[in-house]
Design a protein around this nucleic acid. Sequence first.
DNA 1: CAGGTCATGTAATATGTTACATGATTTC
DNA 2: GAAATCATGTAACATATTACATGACCTG
Lengths: 192, 192
Amino acid sequence: MSLQYAVLGVLEARPLSGYELVQFFDTAAGWVWSAPQSQIYTLLRQMEQRGLIAGTEQVRGTKLKRTVYSLTPLGRKELTSWVSARHPEPPIRDSLLVQALFFDMVGSSAAAAVLEEVVADNEALVEHWREHRDRLLNKDTTLLRERLKHRPETEHDRMAELKAHVFDGLISSATARVEWAKAGIELLKKYR
Amino acid sequence: MSLQYAVLGVLEARPLSGYELVQFFDTAAGWVWSAPQSQIYTLLRQMEQRGLIAGTEQVRGTKLKRTVYSLTPLGRKELTSWVSARHPEPPIRDSLLVQALFFDMVGSSAAAAVLEEVVADNEALVEHWREHRDRLLNKDTTLLRERLKHRPETEHDRMAELKAHVFDGLISSATARVEWAKAGIELLKKYR
DNA sequence: CAGGTCATGTAATATGTTACATGATTTC
DNA sequence: GAAATCATGTAACATATTACATGACCTG
């Protein structure tokens, strides 16, 4: 479900082709929600049928076709109503925590090695997200600039700060995980 | 995949019937990994075929049958090797953050109302997890007591602390989310 | 003209969710 | 004897992943 709304939200910035959306969900938006190529194309056709987006065929060269999708009024309405409502927390399903639950069955050094990698990976993620957060605050990302174009200037700061706040969320959860993993390593040392 | 390892890990405490496992993944373990009834029964049969667990039929009364599953040596080996290895971070897929990404499209009060509920829900989760964490540290949960029975006493403290640490992870991520939501509410007030 | 990028699609598989179905046993 | 609990299963559906497939266009 969320992928659908992510797509609607991206299209609010400007109309995009399927190919561009695929790229987006592989990189930039993959930072919040990721989806493989095959899922995007099938979803776009479904969303078009439901009237949430409208596709226009364009031709590059003589034969290469692409379909550019844009938000319909219905799609916009659907998006804003979803964004305004509280949705139930999804069931927790955290495979690293399942793994940690059984660390007592293996040696401290093996468990600590896993946690060291968790620290490294999450610190790298924090780095990426911090950069993106800063770019958003400076209104310096392609998509945000598109959005600002069709919104009154009085809203620009609010928009940039709200977008940046999402990445603050990613940063703080990854930071929490780093701290948790470090505490785990210390705990394992105690019983080495 | 993780559900399989969660099942193996639970069975390491003691053999359990399908029904007991269903209950477990609906409540206690639902705190780390949740799964519906239908998934459990089908998975158990698959795991038995692969030789990871062994089922024994028992009869209650005259006709009611139940199958009690226990870890096989192969299952134990599979579990410890999975626990010892680092597995790639799953793709990020956080529907609340997708929602927050488009808060700029709706009024501050609607967005703040959503975040207020996020705060309340996550504070409740933190409460539950704190309790469970404390019970683990006191070696006061049914499953942990089962586990301790067949492990040398010198390991008991290590086991309890490692299990509790998992719930520290849940607590810290929910706490981080609470702080994030509160900061969001403040941000929205600024632009009310 | 070779290799990279543009552009879209299908198929098979895995995983997870909701709903429905059945019958035995225990408890009040 | 009715209601709750024990116990297991199937079917339909939604969602997500991997792999494969095809062909046009652009750049050096």
